[in-house]
Simulated scan of single mutants.
Amino acid sequence: MSFLGLRKWPTPFAKPMWPFIAAGSLTLYLVGKMQDMGVRSEEHAKDPRNPYAAQIAKESHH
């Protein structure tokens, strides 16, 4: 049976979506790395408003 002349074709989810999944994963990874680099930069590492300041200070002493 067709709906408005369109036939139902079985399309797996991953086959047409793999470029978007790959690009999204890569973007998420790179944004996370950039955020970590920004938080650990010399300018922001000693800022008291930085929520990771204590952790960075502890790691820098070792």
Rank of each mutant, 00 (worst) to 15 (best):
Ser60Thr: 11
Leu28Ala: 15
Phe3Ile: 15
Ala54Met: 06
Glu43Ser: 14
Arg7Asp: 08
Asn50Gly: 08
Arg40Asn: 05
Thr27Gln: 10
Ile21Gln: 05
Lys33Gln: 15
Glu42Tyr: 00
Gly5Ser: 01
Ala57Asn: 09
Ala22Phe: 02
Asp47Thr: 10
Met1Ile: 04
Met1Pro: 11
Gly5Arg: 01
Asp36Phe: 03
Gln55Gly: 04
Met37Asp: 12
Glu43Ala: 14
Met17His: 05
Ser60His: 05
Phe3Lys: 14
Gln35Asn: 06
Ser60Lys: 09
Gly32Lys: 02
Gly24Thr: 00
Pro10Thr: 09
Ile56Gln: 01
Gln55Met: 06
Lys8Ser: 06
Gly38Asp: 13
Ala14Phe: 13
Trp9Cys: 10
Leu30Val: 14
Leu26Tyr: 14
Lys46Gly: 11
Gly5Val: 02
Lys8Asp: 08
Pro16His: 02
Trp9Phe: 05
Ala57Met: 10
Phe20Tyr: 02
Ile21Ala: 06
Lys58Ile: 02
Gly24Tyr: 00
Met34Val: 12
Leu6Asn: 05
Arg49Asp: 15
Ser41His: 03
Ala53Ile: 05
Ala23Ser: 15
Trp18Val: 07
Phe3Trp: 13
Pro51Val: 02
Lys33Met: 15
Pro10Arg: 12
Phe20Cys: 02
Ala57Tyr: 02
Ser2Trp: 07
Leu30Asp: 10
Leu26Thr: 12
Gly24Cys: 00
Ala53Phe: 00
Asp47Met: 05
Leu28Asp: 15
His62Ser: 04
Met1Asp: 13
Pro12Phe: 12
Gly38Val: 13
Asn50His: 04
Ser2Val: 03
Ile21Gly: 04
Glu43Cys: 12
Glu43Lys: 13
Val31Arg: 01
Leu28Tyr: 14
Leu30Arg: 09
Ala54Thr: 11
Tyr29Asp: 12
Pro51Ser: 02
Leu4Thr: 03
Met1Arg: 04
Gly5Ile: 03
Tyr52Phe: 14
Asn50Ala: 06
Pro10Tyr: 10
